[in-house]
Simulated assay, not measured.
Amino acid sequence: MNVEIILNWRYGVPELSGMYFAAVKYGESAGSFEFINWNESSWDIDSGKEVVAFMELHEFKNQLSIQWPAEHKKQSTAGSESGSDPWAEA
Rank of each mutant, 00 (worst) to 15 (best):
S65H: 14
F60H: 06
S47M: 07
I66L: 14
A30W: 05
A88W: 00
E40M: 03
A53H: 01
E59S: 15
V51D: 05
E89K: 12
F33S: 07
W87I: 13
S80Q: 13
F21C: 05
I6D: 15
I6N: 14
S47K: 08
W9K: 09
F35T: 01
F33M: 13
R10W: 04
D85E: 13
S80A: 08
V3R: 10
S29A: 08
S32W: 00
A78H: 00
P69H: 05
W68A: 15
G31V: 04
V51I: 10
G79E: 12
E28H: 04
A78C: 10
P69L: 09
S47Q: 03
H72K: 07
P14W: 03
A78S: 11
L16K: 01
L64F: 08
F35H: 00
L16W: 00
Q75K: 14
A90G: 14
W43I: 10
A78T: 09
G79D: 08
N8C: 11
I5R: 13
W43E: 09
P86L: 07
H58W: 01
N8H: 08
S17L: 02
N2W: 04
A90W: 02
I45W: 00
K61Q: 13
E59V: 09
N2I: 11
S76C: 11
W38C: 07
E71L: 14
H58Y: 06
A22Y: 03
T77L: 15
N39Q: 01
D85M: 01
Y20M: 06
K61Y: 15
V51S: 06
F21Y: 09
G48N: 06
N62G: 13
S84T: 14
G48Y: 01
E15Y: 05
A78L: 07
G18C: 02
S84E: 13
W9H: 10
R10G: 11
L7W: 04
H72F: 13
E71P: 05
Y11A: 08
F54L: 10
G48P: 04
I5H: 11
E34V: 08
E28S: 10
A70P: 06
G31C: 08
Q75Y: 07
I6C: 11
S65E: 14
A70D: 13
I5L: 15
K73P: 02
A53Y: 01
E4T: 15
I45G: 04
A78P: 04
S76H: 06
W9Q: 12
E15N: 12
D46L: 12
L57Y: 00
L16F: 00
L64Q: 06
E71D: 12
N39K: 06
F35Y: 07
A30P: 00
W87D: 15
Q75I: 15
V51A: 08
W87Y: 08
M1H: 07
N37H: 05
F54A: 11
V52D: 04
G79H: 07
S17D: 00
A53I: 06
S82L: 10
H58C: 13
